[in-house]
Simulated scan of single mutants.
Amino acid sequence: MEKDSREIVTEENASLNNIRFSINDQPVEVKAAPADRLVDILRASLELTGTKISCGIGRCGACSVLMNGKLINSCLVLAYQANETSITTIEGTGNGNVDPVQEAFLQKGGFQCGYCTPGMVMAVKALLAEHPEPSEEQIAEGLSGNLCRCTGYTGIIRAVKKATASGCRQ
């Protein structure tokens, strides 16, 4: 008797789907439930732990990544929504080197504990892609979805201005 080649569906894997997307310019495919959060897939399945989890409800920006070039809170994006998209995380910046925005954060004291820094860097990259020479108001708006409990934002704003002066782009 010939063995059936179909995958055996069990209760454990019955609701899992193949989710395909590009992560940091590399194609990936993961098995996930449609309602799994992107942040959990990034951290647990793909071991990209630079993206942080804090509030879990889209209010702090610690989990910020770029999806198709736009800033999103990965705690609010479900697996099925990430299918066939392009995701850039903090690990995908800089092409193996320190990204110019990260360098500006280092030079201008744009971090203290560092927990919010990956999300802040991603927010600044999105801001500079949209507004290469942002006004004070655009900087405030661009950072408004990211909370920092340590710096008081002065160093972060200096870092944005340094990155702007250096001609940083996404």
Rank of each mutant, 00 (worst) to 15 (best):
K3H: 08
S5C: 14
S5M: 14
R6A: 10
E7S: 08
I8N: 07
V9E: 06
V9S: 07
T10R: 06
E12Q: 04
S15C: 13
S15T: 15
L16F: 13
R20G: 11
R20Y: 13
F21N: 03
F21V: 03
S22V: 13
S22Q: 05
I23V: 15
I23G: 02
D25H: 15
Q26C: 11
Q26L: 13
P27N: 13
V28H: 12
E29C: 15
E29Q: 15
V30Q: 10
V30H: 10
A32S: 15
A33L: 05
A33K: 11
P34A: 10
R37S: 13
D40C: 09
L42P: 15
L42Q: 14
L42V: 14
L42W: 14
R43C: 09
R43D: 11
A44S: 14
L46Y: 08
L46N: 08
E47V: 13
E47P: 02
L48A: 09
L48P: 01
T49Q: 07
G50H: 08
T51Y: 08
K52D: 00
I53L: 00
S54F: 04
S54Y: 00
S54E: 01
I57M: 08
I57F: 10
I57R: 12
C60I: 01
G61A: 01
C63Q: 00
S64I: 08
V65K: 11
N68K: 13
N68D: 15
G69S: 12
G69L: 06
K70S: 14
I72P: 00
S74A: 15
V77C: 00
V77T: 10
A79W: 01
Y80T: 06
Q81L: 06
Q81D: 05
Q81R: 06
A82Q: 03
N83D: 12
N83F: 08
T85L: 04
I87P: 04
I87F: 12
T88D: 00
T88I: 00
T89Q: 01
I90H: 07
I90P: 05
I90R: 03
G92Q: 01
G94Q: 08
N97V: 11
N97W: 07
V98F: 11
Q102D: 10
E103G: 11
E103V: 06
A104M: 05
L106P: 00
L106F: 13
L106G: 03
L106T: 06
Q107H: 10
K108F: 02
G110S: 09
G110R: 02
G110K: 02
G114L: 12
Y115I: 14
P118N: 12
P118R: 09
G119L: 03
M122G: 10
M122F: 11
A123P: 00
K125R: 14
K125E: 02
K125W: 03
A126D: 08
A126R: 01
S135C: 05
E136P: 05
E136D: 14
E137V: 11
I139K: 01
A140N: 13
G142A: 07
L143G: 09
L143Q: 07
S144L: 09
S144G: 12
G145L: 05
L147G: 02
C148V: 07
T151D: 02
T151A: 02
G152K: 04
G152M: 04
Y153F: 09
T154W: 10
R158P: 00
V160M: 05
K161Q: 14
K162W: 04
A163K: 06
A165T: 11
S166I: 12
G167I: 09
Q170N: 15
Q170D: 15
